[in-house]
């Protein structure tokens, strides 16, 4: 479907509501102030992904949750390993170095963070649109950001030339930065927009 500016604006509004809830959830969880950027909505060729995530081989922790229900999609929260380590340390109340690559404790903590963030995003979306949505069990990769994101986008073996997503930056004090993206599946956007009367 062709995306109009008006629809992008609506998508940004979806992002605003959902990401606001997600940021609040993260703040409550970590007992820290979390700032949120104004969400952006983009319809871009997949090849331009690097413009959004920066260097494609930077190590980042990526938490991937499938959004299931009548308007399915994919929700991804990712942050640089340094930030991820700070988040895990804050959760465990320690300053000890954390092994995010193989440590089971650290990894399940990260998944839980993703779970909470995405659930709050989805709950907001459901309340706002009236469309019931549920999050899947979260999956985690701590690896090159480009590798993780392309695997998520290509999972089903099809790729439209244009990828549509909502992008929000979360910044915590001190030294936490993360990015949240939501990608409605083909057809879901229409449903979400329709439910909102756009």
């Amino acid at each position: 479907m062709k995306i109009t500016q008006f629809q992008l604006d609506a998508l940004r509004e979806i992002g605003n509501i959902g990401s606001g809830h997600a940021a609040t959830a993260l703040s409550t969880l970590l007992q820290r102030r979390i700032d949120m950027s104004v969400p952006e909505a983009w319809a871009v060729p997949f090849e331009q992904l690097s413009a959004i995530v920066g260097q494609l081989d930077t190590p980042q922790a990526v938490i991937y949750v499938k959004v299931e229900g009548e308007a399915p999609g994919k929700a991804v929260f990712f942050f640089p390993v340094e930030s991820a380590e700070i988040v895990v340390q804050a959760l465990f109340g320690t300053n000890e170095p954390m092994d995010l690559y193989t440590g089971e404790m650290a990894q399940s903590a990260l998944k839980e963070v993703g779970n909470i963030l995405v659930s709050s995003f989805i709950m907001a979306l459901t309340q706002f649109s009236g469309i019931p949505l549920q999050p899947s069990v979260p999956a985690l990769a701590v690896d090159m950001i480009g590798a993780s994101l392309e695997a998520i986008l290509l999972e089903e073996g099809v790729l439209e030339d244009t990828v549509l997503f909502i992008d929000t930056q979360l910044t915590g004090i001190p030294r936490i930065e993360g990015q949240f993206i939501f990608l409605p599946d083909d057809g879901s956007l229409k449903k979400l927009l329709g439910a909102m009367g756009v």
Binding site: Q55, L56, G146, A147, S148, E150, E155
Partner: peptide
């Protein structure tokens, strides 16, 4: 010349 591609996942 070196050809570089960064962050290959399933690609």
């Amino acid at each position: 010349v070196l050809l570089l591609t960064a962050g290959l996942g399933s690609c």
